[in-house]
Nucleic acid binder design. Structure first.
Lengths: 111, 111
DNA sequence: ATTGTATTTAACGCATCAGTTAAATAACGG
DNA sequence: CCGTTATTTAACTGATGCGTTAAATACAAT
């Protein structure tokens, strides 16, 4: 995958397991074993998903004794929202309706 | 990659070339050759990027004689924004400040 | 019919991803 | 020190991603 920040973020979000991990973390910090519990995959697999999320900046991790707890990080999500902003006029229904309205007004002016 | 809609969308957005194509399309429809022009990669490669974007629903395509023009589609971007909503409290600075404020208030009440 | 232009499909190479099991590392608790 | 628990690293596998070139397809124009 490309190594720029947005690609890392989108790439991390492209996997359902990783999105589920983020969803779980949105309810609070958790250890690797806790995060792995709902899934039918091995701990090393979870461990690497966490690494992907960490590289994308979507989580941060800290060490408590032998446990490594993960927590959700906000910044990259804000980056995604900022990126989406560029396309607001394409997905914001209100804005689309406004544009259509203005278009109609202009046509009426011309006729 | 997983085949659910969100994975397809995020996966499509994870590539810089595809994001550049979307950016170009936000200025208006374009043919494959036009879209390929800024890049140093072959037409078949572009063709497949377009297929990925189409599968994700991010573009639609139509045929005009021997040209296939692509146009940006809004719906999946709206899906992404809806997804981000779940995490609003983590990326919305205003909301974070409000939460911090309420937390402080509560601490003051206790002391 | 033939040639030219636009695009896709096929076949391939190489790198990366997502999973596995087995072994290594880290830290705790007796 | 030793065993247990938590997690990561290593080595491997199969699938997928992204690029290539060559061939096929679709349509236009003469």
């Amino acid at each position: 995958m490309a190594t720029d920040q947005l690609s890392l973020i989108f790439g991390a979000l492209a996997d359902p397991t990783r999105r589920a991990i983020l969803a779980r973390l949105s309810e609070g910090e958790a250890t690797v074993t806790e995060l792995a519990e709902p899934f039918d995959i091995s701990l090393p697999a979870i461990s690497r998903h966490l690494k992907v999320l960490e590289t994308a900046g979507l989580i941060s991790r800290s060490r408590n004794a032998q446990w490594r707890t993960s927590r959700l990080e906000a910044a990259p999500l804000r980056d995604v929202v900022a990126y989406m902003e560029k396309y607001r006029r394409f997905w914001d229904e209100r804005l689309v309706r406004l544009e259509q309205h203005l278009e109609r007004m202009q046509q009426e002016d011309q006729s």
